[in-house]
Design a protein around this nucleic acid. Structure first.
Length: 731
DNA sequence: AGCGCTCAGCTTTTT
DNA sequence: GCTGAGCGCT
């Protein structure tokens, strides 16, 4: 046992008692920066080393792939190869694994597809169209959200009680949406959880097996669980009671997605004898920052009071600043970063700028570009949401599970094969009549003269050619790797040629496809169908903000939501105005307002050394030029934490910033770091384009990690060009 | 099929 | 204010 004792010496008293507490239901309420992941991993180590627990009987669940990966790598460091025996993953991936394994007993297709956001939206769009829903009142995203919330409460379409007239339609859409999902042999994210829970509930023997197998269940971020997730934990854990949950109700910011932090309290009811531990020692922030955070969160009522204390001293006061405009605010952020970097106190990657809504990134990006300072924007177009990537994935999905319309519709005419709306809707009709998926419909067209007769000769030829390739790839998939399948799609479905003929941007698209191929080759090198299925699961369940990994020495720009779980030496929160933070959509409901407050709290507690809270006098949301009121959350900062320049408007340095012109490209940055997006052009500058010739730059703005340059080419008009593709030359 | 115009609508998004 | 979806025109 001396090994173990030594192992836990780096834990404080509170942490150690949580880690080494007796077997049985345990709840750890962990304040920000209190080392909750450390407690979780050490608990696992404790179970294995000191309690003689078999790693194979431990199930640890997280919400993100990133958290799961981090935990696994820590475990590997501490346990070596034994760590691999622990089942560790996100709720969704664990459920997907169980569902595949138990497909027969649970009555779900073994090769079901997992529909991501985009697929879900497409499907819902069709559903709403079929129901003749008013497009304005029933937007796919909103309806999908309502359906997801119903699912978070484990309400089936049959028991769903529409609270309003609007929800009547939601109820009908929900029902049809589920029917379509199952016809397509597909599940959305919520279904993965629900099907698992219902499957376990309905199969006593299977449930017993899993209870036996996973005698120890550990859950991270418990405040973010919804009802199905809670239910899963309850099902598995109630037999042995060895549930170890870690969470912080004050950091619950996903209530709008069905997460219910009251699940923390609910544990107490479900697991009598629950032991609760509090982690209040904060290793991240200065006491000043913590005091500010406590002032803000202290206004919330439904919470366990925590006495957060910093392991470090008071540090710098919090800076609250008023700017004239969003641009002015951004300008201040950038100049502050420059001066802190040049004073040698900080490097660029020490900084994070956080905001409530993505739209706020614009002003910041412009300011960074103006100063020719690099930055990283987190949360743009996701890699797996790119069109070309989705298309390749759709092809792969057709190969994997052949009767799925959503993927079929996506690629049947990509590259163009002369299959238009007409043919497509005929195919759907036929599918409905045969109650069959696209594959069976196509073979029907091939094998049945009468069916073929419904289509034009041209269409039939095209469809059969498609079917031919499709079938051969399905066979190929039995014995080939995913990477080779991608090659085959590129070649046989004519996809490579399609990209090649789509101009210069096709090259970048092909790059992305190759990147996907690399992922497949590296992680799924085994030939065969299982490998393909696992690959598709993986990419469907992966968020690609996963690549927030420290790649460049640059400040990070992100929403407060994405900031959760991260920490930075210096944090700026911009747009601290009424209507923005708290957001106007949350003003009428106290519950929502409390969540806004927690969101603010999450942002504040990301800061280690320095914290800046900025608000501007004008410019709220959407080009609104009216006057803005400082956020009510600023009023809750306790006296003494804020630097003296509070309330003194920026007038001292404020340049009346009517849109600054782009700096000349010769300008050097204080940091001397190359701008990823360089060169940036000045408005009015003359540039040359290979195709359009010489033109004048009219606009130059950041867009999704690239720069959009609008150039006027005289009578050829104004063209919008992407800097990364257009290869513009300065004249 | 591809471009360009108009107009509505506009949080947050771990999976 | 901006952007993206939808429509209508060529």
């Amino acid at each position: 046992m001396p090994v173990a004792v030594e192992q836990f010496q780096n834990l404080n008293e509170q942490q150690r008692s949580a880690v080494t507490c007796p077997l049985g239901p345990t709840l750890v309420l962990a304040g920000p920066g209190s080392g909750k992941t450390r407690v979780l991993t050490n608990r696992i180590v404790h179970l294995i080393r000191n309690c003689d627990v078999d790693p194979g009987s431990i199930l640890a669940v997280t919400f993100t792939n990133k958290a799961a990966r981090e935990m696994m790598s820590r475990l590997e460091k501490m346990l070596g190869p034994r760590a691999a025996g622990v089942t560790l993953g996100t709720f969704h991936s664990v459920c997907a694994r169980i569902l595949r394994r138990e497909s027969e007993r649970f009555g779900v297709g073994r090769d079901f597809a997992i529909f991501d956001q985009d697929d879900q939206t497409r499907l819902m769009k069709n559903v709403l169209k079929e129901l003749n829903a008013d497009e304005k009142r029933y937007r796919p995203g909103a309806v999908l959200g309502a359906v997801s919330r119903a699912k978070s409460e484990m309400l089936t379409p049959t028991v769903y009680q529409p609270p309003t007239y609007w929800h009547e339609m939601v109820g009908r859409a929900y029902e049809l949406y589920q029917r379509r999902l199952s016809e397509n042999n597909a599940m959305d994210f919520d279904d993965l959880l629900l099907a698992t829970v219902w499957g376990l509930q309905a199969n006593e023997a299977v449930l017993r097996r899993y209870r036996e197998r996973y005698r120890h269940v550990l859950v991270d971020e418990f405040q973010d669980t919804n009802l199905p997730q809670f239910e899963l934990v309850r099902l598995l854990g109630s037999a042995h009671g060895c549930v170890f949950a870690v969470g912080d109700e004050d950091q619950s910011i996903y209530g709008w997605r069905g997460a219910d932090y009251r699940n923390l309290q609910r544990l107490r009811d479900e697991f009598p004898g629950l032991r609760t531990y509090l982690l209040e020692r904060n290793y991240r922030s200065t006491q000043t920052i913590l005091d500010a955070a406590k002032g803000i969160i202290g206004q919330n009522l439904q919470r366990t009071p925590k006495d957060l204390t910093a392991a470090q001293g008071a540090g710098e006061p919090v800076r609250v600043r008023e700017a004239y405009s969003q641009d002015d605010e951004a300008e201040f952020v950038v100049s502050e970063i420059e001066s802190l970097v040049s004073s040698g106190d900080h490097r660029l990657s020490d900084f994070a700028v956080m905001y409530r809504v993505n739209a706020q990134s614009r002003a910041l990006e412009e300011a960074f570009m103006r100063r020719r300072l690099p930055y990283r924007l987190v949360g743009g177009t996701r890699f797996y949401a790119r069109r070309e990537v989705k298309e390749i994935l759709a092809y792969l999905r057709l190969i994997s599970s052949a009767n799925e319309w959503v993927s079929f519709d996506r690629v049947i005419n990509v590259p163009p094969r002369g299959i238009g709306d007409k043919t497509l809707s005929l195919l759907h009709d036929l599918g409905a009549r045969m109650s069959a998926g696209p594959y069976d419909v196509l073979t029907g067209v091939r094998d049945d003269e009468r069916r073929a007769g419904e289509f034009s000769r041209r269409a039939v030829t095209a469809l059969l050619a498609f079917l031919d390739v499709w079938e051969s790839l399905r066979h190929l998939s039995e014995e080939t790797t995913v990477a080779e399948l991608i090659d085959a799609i590129l070649a046989l479905f004519g996809y490579a040629g399609h990209l090649a003929s789509s101009g210069p941007e096709g090259e970048e698209r092909l790059e992305n496809v190759h990147e996907l191929r690399t992922v497949a080759a590296e992680h799924f090198p085994t030939p065969g169908r299982m490998s393909l299925i696992h690959f598709l699961d993986e990419v469907a369940l992966v968020a690609d903000s996963d690549d927030l990994e420290e790649v460049a020495d640059a400040p990070v720009l992100m929403t407060l939501h994405t900031a959760k779980g991260l920490e930075f030496p210096v944090v700026f929160i911009v747009g601290m105005q009424e209507g923005l933070l708290p957001h106007s959509r949350s003003l009428d409901e106290p519950r929502q307002l409390e969540e806004e407050r927690r969101l603010c709290y999450v942002g504040v507690t990301r800061a280690m050394k320095r914290l800046y809270l900025l608000h501007s006098l004008s410019g709220g949301l959407y080009g609104d030029t009216g006057r803005s009121i400082p956020s009510r959350f600023l009023d809750d900062l306790p006296p003494g934490v804020v630097a003296a320049d509070r309330a003194k408007p920026a007038s001292a340095e404020a340049r009346p910033t009517t849109r600054c012109p782009w700096r000349p490209t010769g300008a050097t940055t204080t940091a001397g770091t190359p701008v990823p997006q360089s060169p940036v052009f000045k408005i009015g500058e003359t540039v040359r384009h290979a195709h359009f010739g010489e033109g004048t730059v009219v606009e130059c703005k950041p867009i999704r990690g690239d720069v959009e340059v609008n150039v006027s080419f005289g009578k050829r008009g104004i063209k919008r060009l992407l800097l990364s593709l257009a290869n513009l030359e300065r004249v």
